[in-house]
Design a protein around this nucleic acid. Structure first.
Lengths: 165, 165
DNA sequence: CAAGATTGACACATCAATCTTA
DNA sequence: TAAGATTGATGTGTCAATCTTG
């Protein structure tokens, strides 16, 4: 059962904040994709996969872990990895330590791709986000993002608040 | 040409704020879709189209205008409208005032759908967003969202800052 | 020719089913 | 049986092409 009580409608301020957030959430991905697609032939999520791998010393990560850090499902990441592998940016191998796991590794070509793509991407991120915000707002945004979505897990189940025995 | 100068990399704080924003932008739509799909058989953008129409006194809006308020392209909205029309929630008719335009109208069934769907949806929005934020943070978020994406238009072109003659 | 809107082809995400190993 | 991962079918978004009216 969801609720039989009266709905807690949004206040005018909440409503305006909500519609603003919806606008950002709807438009930002499109804008990021546009720049990356045009300049590098990558979608944002593909770039993110490569970038997350590039920040590891060994350029490796298990698929499950990589899915978490790139906000994707296992299935989606698998399809993405297939494409990136086909382009030579990525390689997958079984984990020697756990036969169930797969380890994704950034190839030399993949690292090169990230290095060449990053400057244009970060410039775009500045245009869209940070050039428009004060340092104080960046701090506020950081905290807000940390709090958002905290009430539920990815599957939509409510996360119980910590209980002290 | 994009830039030959050194990239302006993100500071640690900016980087953390950015990854947090990416997380929200990636996961929030999925979570909204999950609740609406499960409880009402609607995607979030479909719900948004119906909701935006329901707030007009005559339940009508031109397609172009509706696309803007729902953060969609004309093409995408057209596909969405086709589906909603097939389900009987929406009706499209030519604009008598301008033969090029099409006016989308929410049907009685569509209004009923919004009315029945809204409570569960707003509850979900509270869980995901507002229950986690203080009143002060809501104000901050409102202002931040207003500033974000201000630097470029939907097509990615940089918007020139106002010039005084 | 521009504005408003739609269409169909293609690419991608999602979901359920499946396979393998711990 | 659960965890990790992949696969294929289906639905939806995107892009380019098209059509009609101002």
């Amino acid at each position: 059962m969801t609720s039989t009580a009266d709905p807690r409608w949004l206040s005018p301020d909440e409503r305006e904040a909500w519609l603003g957030l919806v606008r950002v959430v709807s438009r930002l991905p499109t804008m990021l994709d546009a720049q990356l697609e045009r300049d590098a032939g990558l979608s944002f999520v593909e770039y993110l996969v490569l970038a997350m791998l590039s920040e590891r010393p060994d350029r490796c990560r298990r698929m499950t872990e990589l899915a978490r850090t790139t906000n994707t499902s296992a299935s989606r990441l698998s399809h993405i990895a297939t494409r990136l592998e086909r382009q030579g940016f990525l390689q997958r191998d079984p984990d020697p330590a756990d036969g169930r796991a797969t380890i994704a590794r950034l190839t030399d070509a993949g690292l090169d791709k990230v290095v060449r793509t990053a400057p244009g991407h970060v410039e775009r991120v500045r245009q869209l986000v940070f050039d428009a915000l004060s340092g104080e707002q960046v701090d506020q945004l950081l905290q807000i993002n940390a709090d958002l979505l905290a009430g539920v897990d990815p599957d939509g189940r409510t996360i119980p608040t910590a209980v002290v025995p």
